[in-house]
Simulated assay, not measured.
Amino acid sequence: MRKLGIGLIGTGFMGKSHAMAWRAAGSFSGDIQPILVSVADINGEAAENAANQFGFKRWTTTWQDLIDDPEIDVISITSPNRFHAEQSLAAIAAGKNVHCEKPLAPDSLIAEQMYQAAEKAGVMTQVGFNYIKNPMLKLAKQMIAEGELGDITGFRGIHAEDFMTSPQVPWSWRLDPTGGAGAVADLGSHILGMARFLLGPINELFADLDTVVKSRPESAGSTILKAVEVDDIARLTVKFARGCGGHIEANWVASGHKMQLGFEITGTRGSLIFNQERFNELQFYQFGQNDGRNGFRTIVAGPEHAPYNLFCPAAGHQIGFNDLKTIEMLEFIQSIASGKVVGPDFKEAYEIQKLVDASLVSSRERSWVRFNHVEVRRQDAQARLEASLIK
C-alpha cells in the first residue's frame, strides 16, 4: 500500500475540517493511504492540540518545516488568504502536491503564477470549492448536460451569510485588502465557481460592490476603529458563453442567513432549485405535466447518487458538510494516483479569480467587463499587487 504523507498548515475551522477529511478519506482510498504526518500553526498550543486530537505524528510552529519534510507528499493549506501564494509556491518548488483553500490568491495575476508554477513542476493541485462535490450538484450538472431542462434561459445564484452583520464584529484577516477582495472573493468565489461548474464560462459581467460597515473595532472590545476597505455585498449581472444571462450575489451581512448558497436555473423544458441549507435535496420542475398538478418535486439524495453510497446505504438519511470535504480529499487522492485532474485545480481557481478581479474593475468603472479584454484585468491585478507591496 502506498502511503501519502499529509502536512497541514492551520488549525482553525478549515484546518480541523481538513484533518477530519483526510482521515476519513483513507477509509475509501484503496491502495493509497493518507498519513497525517505534521501540522503547523503559529500558535504552538493549537498545533500541539491538533496533533493530539487528530493523530498527526508531530507538530510545529513553522510552516516551512512541512515543506522541508521528506515524509510529506501533500501540503494542505488553510491559512489566511494572504499567505496562500507564498506557501503554495514553496510547496510546489519542493515538488509537493498542494491543496489550498479558496480564494486561491489576492488577485488573478498571482493566481496565474501559481497555476503555471504547478503545471511546470508537474504536481497536482486542488482548491477548496467543496460545495460542488455534493452528489446533488453533480446530478444537476448531469441533468443540464443531458438536456432535461432544455435550453438554459437564466441563472440566479447567491451566497449569503450573516457573520459580518454586526458593526461590532472586529476587523480581521477577512478584511485585509492585501489578501484580496471582501465578500465577492470570500463568498462570491463559491457561487461563481458553482455557476461555472453547472453552466460553463462567464464571458461578460457588470458588478456593483458595496461596503455597508465602513469601520470596525481593530480587535474584540476595542474602541479604536479601523477602516474597512473591502466589500460587504457584491451584486453581479453576468452573461455566460453558452448564451444565457444571470444574476449573482455575494453577501456576508445578510441578517438571518447562515448558509444561503444556492441557485435557480431555468430552461425551456424545466427548472432546478438548490439551497445549501437543505443540500441533500434538489428541486426539479418539468413541463408537460397535467394542468392543475404542475409544480416542483423534491429529489432526495440517496445511494444512487454517488458517492453518497460511500457514507450511507439509505436514501434521505443525509450526508453533511464534513462528508463533502471527505469527498473533496478522496477525489484529490484519486487525482494524484491517476495523474488526471479531477479539480477544481489551481487553473480553475485562476479562472474564478479573474471573475472576482473583473467585478472590482466593473464596480469601480461602472461598466461592463468582457473577458476578451485580458489586459484590463492584468493591469488591475498588477496595480493592486504593487499597492499591497508598498503597504
Rank of each mutant, 00 (worst) to 15 (best):
Q168G: 05
A47T: 12
S359F: 02
S76V: 11
I319P: 12
M136A: 15
K258I: 09
E229T: 01
L8P: 04
P177C: 04
E148G: 03
A383I: 08
P177L: 02
L355N: 11
Y350G: 01
H305D: 14
K347F: 05
I336S: 12
L330H: 08
E331S: 07
H18Q: 12
M114R: 08
I191E: 13
I42V: 15
R23M: 10
N49D: 06
S335I: 13
M329S: 07
D345T: 03
I9F: 14
L66A: 09
A185V: 01
D176T: 01
H159L: 05
G320I: 00
A358T: 11
G122I: 13
K16M: 12
V212L: 06
T165W: 05
A349V: 06
I248E: 02
Q334M: 06
I158Y: 13
R269L: 15
N294V: 05
P313A: 15
I265D: 07
D69G: 05
V230L: 00
K258F: 14
M20G: 13
I202H: 07
H18N: 12
A40C: 01
L109V: 04
D323H: 15
G343I: 04
T11E: 10
G157V: 04
V356I: 15
F371T: 02
D68I: 01
L282C: 15
A160W: 05
M329N: 08
Q382F: 12
I158N: 09
A24T: 11
L8T: 14
G55F: 10
Q276Y: 04
G188T: 00
G320N: 14
V127L: 08
R82I: 09
S29L: 12
G288V: 02
V238D: 03
S362V: 07
L175H: 08
N203P: 07
T60D: 09
P167T: 11
F13G: 02
L192Q: 02
H190V: 00
H317C: 13
N130D: 06
I273F: 11
G221I: 10
L139I: 06
G295I: 13
R269I: 02
T61P: 11
G179Q: 02
